[in-house]
Design a protein around this nucleic acid. Structure first.
Length: 677
RNA sequence: GCGCCCGUAGCUCAGCAGGAUAGAGCGGCGGUUUCCUAAACCGCAGGUCGGAGGUUCGAAUCCUCUCGGGCGCGCCA
């Protein structure tokens, strides 16, 4: 079984060889094995020789030769004779037999054993990848919509990106608990409770979109709150009523939550996002704990009236074994309770524009708690109390997916949680940020009217556009896509094509077209969000994300559909041969076959990369390259019309491995591969 | 003012555990269909990697400075 990536396998051998040459222990050596920068240099390269030349007092190429000599016996079955090039690169070209052997070990889709993922109870084709040996308990917090408000583009990225982490980590074998930290508590509910004393609550009988109606009421209530003293005062009282469990207030709140959850769940299902009501643990869940949290902070952080001197701090930090020598103090300030954080020099960790220490308020002067307090309660809960299905208590890794603007907040509350001793050195807590969704004007995406874009409307438009593209193809008018679609580029530039143009190869019924449009549309939106580096803003562009060329979801879905089409034809002509039968051998001869095989063998690298660095776009790039490798293979290597049966079965197996890999990879991105399009 | 993120081809973006002539898609130009979905594939043109120093055998990648853009900086979330 393939426990490791090709790169790691090679790195291990090279580390051993370099240890032999240098006399240093192998585990302290970076063998600098990387994928080759250019196919002409082979598949992988080892760049270690140049750096070792000076300490070894030898010429780089000589060092390279010594390493190559030492590693050659270790790679006997793996690589062609090594080549030394340039200043001392060692170029590695894998043997064709090794590649085919390597891929041959991938079992058929439903083979017993390691197939199947723990998550969701859904059987997942693992395509030969075993789970990690040491699974961790992981919390992924994402999406975080607000009660009484519709989800909008602002929630898109967190929801989509967080879902990828949940899927990838679960696939890797970790125990993942998804947490939807919904904004379901706070002063805004006072306004709504007060409002609904004299207005009827929206219902499905009266309102097509209940949540939309509630959101409209929310805005109206907010307006009145700002202009009506009496109303504002009563709204504030209503907050208290809700907190003290007043039945009427409680009932309104529960109705608002129920209606909101219903809408969210519907949207998650539509988006094919894993979040369910079971994953909801909103701010209200932590409400009862907040006084205890503040009390615990008071005890753990100390309540000095003024920051200690640097000397005192380093002393106290040692005594309390506070990590990184930092100090945190809880202090009353203008009636509020504030946590101040200092570095080991006694300097404030955070400052305001006036250059003074910036604290984190955990309790307002009116006694109310804030976002930060709830976050502290939540992280404490996740690290100390949350029970995992396996029976383990407390997460070992916590991942927060929110936009980059909250970075300072996360830095502060992580620092507090660390100072309080909740975040310890053996757990990994990460704030995963992302940039904004921009419109064509490079400003945050808005509707023409300047409103925020509702997620629901965005998805509807995606389907509509995908459907229009399908229609266009059906009519065979190749050059004039986007007809009737706002913002299209090249409408009707190309004249009508020759008379007697052939009908498209595939005909779909109306139902099929709708289904394909739905899946392609959603996939395009999700993929467009994932394909770029998370941290950067990205420009939302319908035409680009729905295009069949380039790094897009449709391109990869198309590659998958083409393979499935080959299989349907094969079933007609050859009666669905079992390409995993023992006598079927992978024969890799054509360069396009080789390129495809090598790419397939790199799946493990791509997935581990996402799990480690939390960068979905690297998996996107891998899948795009895989699909492109397949397209080239498809053009130059006939499958059903292969020269002989051996080649045909070999190519069919290569095709199937490609389809499975695409399906798995897209699945980890939350995108469903389809049979036809 | 301080802090964080980002400046790579006309456009949208990869590449940044330092490594060989910096890649892709779109757009432009030119090709490929008696053949498994041409919504595809192939070729050509196109880049002072914002700028200046530095470290290094080697810098788009690391460090410093600088210019430009975005975001953030206590009783909101």
């Amino acid at each position: 079984m393939r426990h490791d990536s090709l790169q790691n396998l090679l790195a291990e051998q090279f580390a051993a060889a370099i240890a032999q040459v240098t006399g240093r222990p192998a585990d302290q050596i970076d063998p600098a094995v990387r994928p080759a920068g250019d196919p002409q240099f082979g598949d992988y390269q080892c760049n270690a020789a140049m750096a070792l030349a000076r300490p070894l007092k030898a010429k780089p190429r000589e060092v390279a030769q010594r390493i190559a000599d030492a590693v050659t016996p270790l790679l006997a079955d793996i690589a062609e004779p090594l080549e030394i090039a340039g200043p001392g690169f060692i170029n590695i070209r894998l043997k064709g037999e090794f590649l085919s052997q390597h891929l041959s070990e991938i079992p058929a889709p439903r083979a017993a054993g390691i197939e199947g993922s723990r998550d969701q109870g859904i059987e997942v084709d693992r395509v030969g990848l075993p789970p990690v040996e040491r699974p961790l308990r992981v919390v992924v917090e994402y999406s975080q919509p607000n009660i009484a408000k519709q989800m909008h583009v602002g929630h898109l990225r967190s929801t989509i990106i967080g879902d990828v982490f949940a899927r990838v980590l679960a696939f890797e074998g970790h125990e993942v608990i998804r947490q939807n930290h919904i904004g379901d508590w706070g002063t805004q509910f006072g306004m709504l409770i007060r409002w609904y004393r004299e207005h009827p609550l929206p219902t499905p009988q009266v309102h097509a979109d209940v949540l939309e109606a509630i959101e409209n009421d929310y805005r109206a209530a907010q307006q009145r709150f700002d202009h009506d003293e009496q109303f504002a005062a009563e709204a504030r009282l209503a907050v208290g009523a809700l907190q003290s469990g007043d039945p009427q207030a409680r009932q309104v709140w529960e109705r608002l939550c129920a209606e909101s959850w219903r809408a969210f769940t519907e949207l998650y299902e539509h988006l094919d996002v894993l979040l369910t009501p079971e994953n909801v643990r909103g701010e209200s869940f932590y409400n009862d704990r907040l006084p205890l949290i503040v009390e615990e902070l008071r005890q753990k952080l100390g309540t000095a009236g003024a920051p200690a001197t640097a000397h005192e701090q380093s002393h106290r930090a040692d005594a309390a074994s506070a990590p990184r020598g930092r100090r945190a103090l809880l202090r009353a300030d203008q009636g509020a309770l504030v946590i101040y954080l200092y570095d080991d020099q006694g300097e404030p960790l955070f400052k305001n524009p006036e250059g003074q220490a910036l604290g984190m308020i955990v309790q307002k002067s009116d006694g109310a708690y804030l976002y930060a307090t709830t976050d502290l309660a939540a992280i404490r809960f996740r690290l100390k109390e949350l029970e995992f299905p396996s029976g383990g208590i407390g997460a070992q890794r916590v991942i927060y997916v929110t936009d980059a603007r909250q970075k300072l907040h996360f830095q502060m509350f992580f620092a507090c949680a660390r100072a309080a001793g909740w975040i310890t050195d053996d757990v990994r807590v990460e704030h995963v940020t992302f940039g904004s969704v921009l419109g064509p004007d490079r400003k945050p995406l808005k509707t023409r009217a300047g409103q925020t874009v509702k997620l629901r409307e965005l998805l509807d438009e995606a389907e509509k556009r995908a459907y229009a593209l399908l229609e266009n193809r059906d009519q065979g008018s190749k050059g004039s896509r986007d007809q009737g679609i706002e913002g299209s580029r090249d409408r009707g530039i190309e004249g009508p094509r020759d008379q007697g143009e052939e009908a498209p190869a595939v005909q779909f019924s109306e139902d099929e077209k709708r289904e394909i449009a739905r899946r392609v549309g959603i996939a395009a939106v999700k993929y467009a969000d994932l394909r770029n580096d998370r941290t950067a803003d990205y420009v939302f562009d319908w035409d680009k994300m729905l295009a069949l060329q380039g790094n897009t979801a449709p391109y990869m879905m198309y590659a998958h559909a083409r393979i499935r089409s080959i299989y349907r034809k094969a079933a007609e002509r050859f009666g669905a041969p079992d390409v995993y039968a023992p006598h079927v051998r992978l024969v890799i001869t054509h360069p396009a076959e080789r390129a495809l095989a090598l790419r397939l063998a790199r799946l493990r690298e791509a997935i581990s990369d996402v799990a480690t660095n939390l960068t979905p776009h690297t998996l996107c790039t891998y899948l795009y390259e895989l699909a492109a490798d397949f397209m080239r293979f498809y053009e130059s290597c006939p499958v059903l019309a292969a020269p002989d049966e051996t080649a045909r079965l070999s190519r069919m197996r290569l095709c199937d491995l490609t389809a499975r890999t695409l399906k798995l990879g897209l699945g980890l991105l939350g995108i469903e591969a389809i049979e036809r399009m």
